[in-house]
Design a protein around this nucleic acid. Sequence first.
DNA 1: GCCAACGTTGGC
DNA 2: GCCAACGTTGGC
Length: 139
Amino acid sequence: MAFWLIKSEPDAFSWDEQVANDVEPWTGVRNHQAKKNLAAMAVGDRAFFYHSNVQRAIVGVVEVVRAAYPDPTAETGAWVCVDVKAVGPMPTPVTLAQIKAEPGLEELALVRQSRLSVCPVSAEHWQELCQMGGWVEQG
DNA sequence: GCCAACGTTGGC
DNA sequence: GCCAACGTTGGC
């Protein structure tokens, strides 16, 4: 299983909306690097749900429930999207400031490439970020 | 194919 | 609101 981080501006689409909708198609990605990451996702992969811009924090965890398929919001069919399902909120949102202050997390794609909206996260970093947020895996 | 101009994203 | 990073476009 792989780990990811997906960004959304809460003004456009927030964690609350993700929870309310439960399963949501993650559309609108128009960046080749991000597309590559979407295409690499498999059902069962986990992703952090990150609020960019106004909040700048990891606020929840989602699970990939449908692998990459053509993004219906792209006329040309050249882009892809996945479906993600809300798993649960971060007990304590992990802020970008905390992430940047943490030695060992400076290699995170989120930090190194701030404009990339779909980032890979290593298993080690995933564990560390979960600890920082007080995330407890159930069952 | 290079590079300047411009637009967008996102942190501060 | 400003600016840095980076992607895209278009002239040459």
